[in-house]
Deep mutational scan, measured.
Amino acid sequence: HNLTITQGKLFFHYNPKLCLSEIHKMEEVSGTKGRQERNDIALKTNGDQASCENELLKFSYIRTSFDKILLRWEPYWPPDFRDLLGFMLFYKEAPYQNVTEFDGQDACGSNSWTVVDIDPPLRSNDPKSQNHPGWLMRGLKPWTQYAIFVKTLVTFSDERRTYGAKSDIIYVQTDATNPSVPLDPISVSNSSSQIILKWKPPSDPNGNITHYLVFWERQAEDSELFELDYCLKGLKLPSRTWSPPFESEDSQKHNQSEYEDSAGECCSCPKTDSQILKELEESSFRKTFEDYLHNVVFVPRKTSSGTGAEDPRPSRKRRSLGDVGNVTVAVPTVAAFPNTSSTSVPTSPEEHRPFEKVVNKESLVISGLRHFTGYRIELQACNQDTPEERCSVAAYVSARTMPEAKADDIVGPVTHEIFENNVVHLMWQEPKEPNGLIVLYEVSYRRYGDEELHLCVSRKHFALERGCRLRGLSPGNYSVRIRATSLAGNGSWTEPTYFYVTDYLDVPSNIA
């Protein structure tokens, strides 16, 4: 807008934040220059609390790290170098490059900038070799853009010569660093050979998330399962459950009422301010606690030095998902009996873990797994792929695949051998790939016309006998059925096997 004052003059007093240069501009645009008398524009009460600059400061050096910015700028000295009290560095987070010096300023003089007072450097006698002032900004957020400017702080001049310097606002972004852990990993099994893994992005990506790394490792069953005799009275049979499938998407929606109208769909109840505040506090606490764990609990591995020492970490090797089922080394339970199943799973520490690289999504279907087997899954978020990966501390989750139908069934015939004193040795093959492992066998036998009897055969007993022995049988026709019990439950009964026990007292003698 054009402003013209045809008559009258300007009068400025007691404006401590208004620089004289701005008042002189007002004289020019209003056409009143030359009308004012000496005392109409006070030299001592206008701009006496402001830094009124008329020179431009330029930054000469900028260096960044993930949490620091090192700045240096060209030296500046007023005509009387004693008038320079120091520099004021202003900075704040700036997602967009549209910041002005006066953003967030209120009537009390406060604003949204963080201000650092910096002492002037030592003055050199040689004007050509003056030290460049600077400042190291610490405690910054990774991968965050900051708006920065600097200006001088000078003393009051009796001659009211307006001098000083100020830089333009520059924008500097800190470097990326390792992201925080992925949030809320959930693993479920939808079949006997697959596990579905879902997660949420890290709360602090500290860069642009480029991919996720998912490692999985087959877990050995508890050692007590191999040692305890679950045929003993009072000892509860062990059981394991597989990871249940995901709930429906509708039930997972946030901010939804727990109660549904019987007449149909209901609208979600909005969260109160107290609920939102509580969630923010919980989120802040979780982030602080995660940072504490990362800094205190997890110790970084030592990389190899120039002395030739090897990095103890196993090298990563990509495998196809079809090879995942046989990740671990199978060892027989008892070496003397080769027909026992290889369900003991000690994992070799030198073995390469299978892994998958996930790009542009937060889910993965891990296939080719062994049925009813526990897996430990390790999830890392990465925001750099080359020249070397920059990934987060791992988040861990466990899951067990679903049982395989008929995996616990005894394959092959049940054979028998009759000894003296009416002892019958029953023999059968253990299931080759049971659900988890076989903890015991149930032997059901009966003599024709009598009630059915049951015998429990422990895992250890089966390994020693290759089956079991029935003792003290009365003469007669017998039928026997056997079924295995694994961590997933009972298998199917075998087809009945028949044998006849004679009275050993009636056996004919070869003595003449």
Score class of each variant (00 low, 15 high):
381 A>P: 00
304 S>E: 06
335 A>P: 12
451 E>K: 03
490 N>D: 03
509 S>H: 05
496 P>K: 15
401 T>I: 05
419 F>C: 09
325 G>F: 10
271 K>I: 10
296 V>Y: 07
335 A>W: 11
490 N>V: 08
251 S>L: 12
308 G>W: 11
206 N>S: 04
309 A>K: 15
291 D>Q: 06
503 D>T: 07
286 R>H: 07
317 K>W: 05
369 L>C: 08
262 S>F: 10
292 Y>D: 07
285 F>S: 10
204 D>H: 01
266 C>D: 07
382 C>Q: 00
300 P>K: 07
483 R>W: 01
285 F>A: 15
281 E>P: 03
468 C>I: 11
328 T>L: 15
369 L>D: 01
502 T>K: 08
296 V>I: 06
241 T>F: 14
476 G>W: 00
297 V>F: 12
390 R>N: 09
298 F>R: 11
274 S>W: 12
307 T>V: 03
247 E>T: 05
226 F>H: 05
414 V>Q: 03
221 E>H: 10
435 N>W: 02
381 A>L: 01
236 K>P: 13
509 S>A: 11
220 A>P: 08
244 P>Y: 09
454 H>Q: 09
211 H>D: 01
250 D>M: 08
248 S>I: 15
393 V>H: 09
246 F>H: 10
418 I>L: 11
357 K>H: 04
501 V>W: 02
508 P>V: 13
477 N>W: 08
311 D>G: 03
442 E>A: 02
463 A>D: 13
375 Y>I: 04
457 V>N: 09
409 D>L: 11
443 V>H: 00
274 S>T: 06
416 H>A: 10
303 T>Q: 11
248 S>Q: 14
415 T>V: 06
219 Q>W: 06
463 A>P: 06
234 G>E: 14
484 A>V: 03
313 R>W: 03
222 D>L: 11
297 V>G: 13
301 R>E: 09
391 C>F: 02
212 Y>F: 13
265 E>K: 12
230 Y>N: 13
410 I>L: 09
266 C>P: 11
510 N>A: 10
425 H>Y: 14
342 S>Q: 05
482 I>M: 03
342 S>K: 10
229 D>R: 14
395 A>T: 07
287 K>A: 09
241 T>W: 03
272 T>E: 08
493 W>Y: 06
366 I>G: 00
302 K>S: 11
369 L>E: 04
347 T>C: 07
348 S>R: 14
249 E>H: 09
492 S>R: 04
295 N>D: 04
265 E>Q: 11
407 A>R: 11
326 N>S: 11
467 G>Y: 01
372 F>E: 03
218 R>Y: 13
453 L>C: 02
217 E>R: 01
364 L>V: 04
399 A>C: 09
461 H>Y: 14
443 V>E: 00
363 S>P: 09
250 D>I: 10
505 L>Q: 05
332 P>A: 15
227 E>I: 08
398 S>A: 08
249 E>Y: 01
345 V>F: 05
284 S>I: 00
282 E>I: 11
324 V>E: 03
391 C>N: 01
402 M>N: 15
317 K>M: 07
288 T>Q: 15
376 R>W: 14
283 S>Y: 10
436 G>W: 02
244 P>L: 11
505 L>I: 15
216 W>F: 12
407 A>Y: 07
247 E>R: 13
293 L>V: 07
376 R>F: 09
251 S>M: 11
222 D>F: 07
450 D>V: 12
216 W>R: 10
321 L>G: 06
373 T>C: 02
211 H>P: 01
329 V>M: 12
471 R>K: 05
359 V>M: 10
245 P>Q: 13
509 S>F: 10
462 F>P: 02
402 M>W: 15
290 E>S: 04
388 E>Y: 14
287 K>R: 06
391 C>Y: 15
507 V>R: 15
242 W>M: 05
259 Y>M: 04
347 T>S: 11
290 E>P: 07
398 S>R: 05
444 S>A: 07
268 S>P: 05
504 Y>L: 10
363 S>N: 03
320 S>Q: 09
239 S>V: 12
493 W>R: 02
243 S>T: 09
284 S>R: 13
386 T>H: 05
466 R>T: 07
313 R>T: 11
359 V>R: 12
456 C>G: 01
323 D>Q: 15
296 V>P: 06
497 T>P: 00
216 W>L: 12
404 E>V: 10
312 P>S: 14
421 N>G: 06
475 P>A: 12
345 V>W: 10
311 D>R: 04
301 R>N: 13
244 P>A: 08
292 Y>S: 11
332 P>G: 05
395 A>P: 02
449 G>V: 01
475 P>G: 06
302 K>F: 14
431 P>H: 00
358 V>Q: 14
435 N>I: 00
302 K>Q: 10
265 E>D: 06
443 V>L: 07
427 M>W: 10
486 S>Y: 00
346 P>S: 14
323 D>W: 12
295 N>F: 15
483 R>F: 01
301 R>G: 06
311 D>P: 04
449 G>H: 01
243 S>A: 11
461 H>T: 08
297 V>Q: 11
429 Q>G: 12
385 D>K: 13
258 E>A: 14
440 L>Q: 13
355 F>C: 07
207 G>R: 01
360 N>V: 10
447 R>M: 04
470 L>Y: 01
462 F>W: 10
415 T>S: 09
486 S>T: 11
214 V>R: 00
205 P>M: 05
351 E>A: 04
341 S>T: 05
483 R>L: 03
267 C>I: 15
272 T>Y: 07
505 L>S: 08
211 H>R: 06
256 Q>Y: 08
336 A>V: 09
448 Y>H: 11
327 V>K: 02
384 Q>V: 13
323 D>I: 13
483 R>D: 00
487 L>T: 05
239 S>E: 10
355 F>M: 12
344 S>Y: 10
340 T>H: 04
260 E>Y: 15
400 R>E: 12
398 S>I: 08
209 I>V: 12
288 T>I: 15
437 L>N: 05
360 N>I: 13
443 V>I: 08
255 N>R: 03
482 I>N: 00
290 E>I: 15
259 Y>S: 09
410 I>N: 02
256 Q>F: 15
319 R>D: 06
436 G>A: 14
427 M>S: 10
499 F>W: 03
252 Q>F: 15
493 W>A: 00
435 N>G: 02
403 P>M: 04
338 P>I: 11
212 Y>P: 00
469 R>N: 06
492 S>Y: 06
317 K>D: 12
270 P>F: 15
412 G>R: 10
215 F>D: 06
461 H>R: 09
303 T>S: 07
329 V>L: 08
327 V>R: 10
335 A>G: 09
469 R>E: 12
255 N>E: 07
274 S>L: 04
385 D>N: 03
503 D>Q: 05
298 F>D: 08
252 Q>V: 12
510 N>R: 07
292 Y>H: 07
498 Y>R: 08
210 T>L: 08
451 E>S: 14
283 S>T: 10
258 E>N: 08
354 P>K: 09
417 E>S: 08
344 S>F: 07
457 V>H: 02
414 V>F: 04
271 K>H: 07
248 S>H: 02
204 D>L: 04
301 R>K: 03
510 N>I: 15
392 S>T: 02
226 F>A: 10
261 D>M: 04
303 T>D: 13
336 A>T: 07
431 P>F: 02
273 D>Y: 05
455 L>R: 05
506 D>N: 15
341 S>H: 14
